[in-house]
């Protein structure tokens, strides 16, 4: 196996390229994704190589980008929509919730909408308002959509291709503060290492289960390494998909450890973490040694960037959550 060290950003770019080479119906739509290659350069060089008809610089109107993307899918295309930042998806929210998520079931399966909506998500980059949000709960709450997060270059490379091949609409979250973190990717491999919607135990452990996704995976792995030095064995699960949720992966771990901490950037109130806590309580009640602990962004709007490090759960707050779980 010949692997290459690359970044999440470059891995997504490579995955998009692979998908476009494989299927001429794959087209990209978004603001500034052509000549510029996107504000994060995720689509760099793709317009040069695939042309303006397949890498479409759109007018600055997110509902338009989304709505026309659905229309293209109705015509048989597989559009990959880039939303420039998490906080700019709301103008497209109506099209996503009212049309994208519903047309398949409304038509009793006659309509398939293989649309991928790529959203650079999360905070930690010192950005201004509307550039740091974790809004996955809105979309996970909308049945008809699937919602996934990549957290490392290998997943980024494969998951974007799998999302494009999926006949259901997929909200594809990219952890923007991790874009330039490196990892090994086998670009010559011919099949994905795991299913798009399966969770992945990224670090086995015995004392506490730590469930996370997207940008929090690295934080949690760092926390687990520190905890190991302190004598606590943490099992870290990268959920990868929050809709569908691979609940069996979580419950089988919790049945072993008896303790669950869920770590997310989003506020805890009515969140994916809350849903996991409820499901695990229902299903693992007699295995639990402690309440499920949520380590999350505070229940406030995303704050000014000068204080965001106090808002985002960091290594210490994750370990504090682990301590609270172990205190029982």
């Amino acid at each position: 196996m010949a692997t290459t060290k690359t970044t999440i950003a470059k891995a997504i770019n490579a995955g998009l390229r692979k998908s476009m080479e494989r299927d001429p119906k794959v087209i990209l739509q978004g603001e500034d994704i052509g000549k510029l290659g996107g504000v994060f350069r995720i689509t760099e060089h793709l317009q040069k190589d695939f042309g303006e008809d397949r890498v479409i610089d759109t007018p600055l109107a997110e509902s338009g980008i989304m709505g026309t993307g659905i229309g293209l899918a109705l015509r048989g295309y597989r559009p990959v929509i880039e939303i420039q930042f998490d906080g700019f998806v709301y103008p497209a929210f109506d099209q996503i919730v009212s049309q994208l998520s519903k047309l398949h079931s409304r038509s009793r399966g006659a309509i398939k909408l293989p649309v991928v909506v790529r959203i650079p998500m999360g905070g930690g980059i010192g950005a201004v308002e509307h550039h740091s949000e974790s809004n996955e709960a809105y979309f996970a709450h909308t049945l008809g959509l699937k919602v996934v997060f990549c957290s490392n270059p290998e997943d980024a490379y494969w998951m974007i291709q799998q999302a494009i091949e999926c006949d259901d609409p997929v909200i594809f979250y990219e952890p923007k503060r991790r874009y330039h973190e490196k990892g090994e990717v086998d670009f010559e491999a011919t099949s994905a290492p795991r299913d798009l919607f399966s969770a992945n135990v990224v670090r086995p452990g015995t004392d506490v289960t730590l469930a996370c996704w997207g940008p929090m995976v690295k934080t949690c792995l760092d926390a687990a390494a520190v905890a190991q030095d302190e004598g606590t064995s943490i099992e870290v699960i990268d959920l990868r998909s929050v809709s569908p949720l691979d609940i069996d992966a979580i419950t089988s771990s919790v049945e072993k450890t008896g303790r669950l901490v869920v770590a997310q950037e989003a506020p805890s109130f009515v969140s994916v973490g809350s849903e996991i806590a409820a499901l695990v309580t229902e299903r693992c009640f007699y295995s639990l040694e402690s309440p499920v602990i949520r380590v999350a962004g505070w229940n406030t709007p995303y704050p000014a960037s000068k204080v965001e490090e106090h808002y985002l759960p960091d290594l210490d707050r994750v370990l504090d959550g682990v301590d609270r779980a172990l205190a029982h």
Binding site: I70, G71, L72, G76, Q95
Partner: peptide, 14 residues
């Protein structure tokens, strides 16, 4: 109106 416009963009690409 947007779905139709996207569909028309598909017609162009076809």
């Amino acid at each position: 109106a947007l779905l139709g416009t996207g569909y028309a963009m598909g017609i162009q690409r076809d």
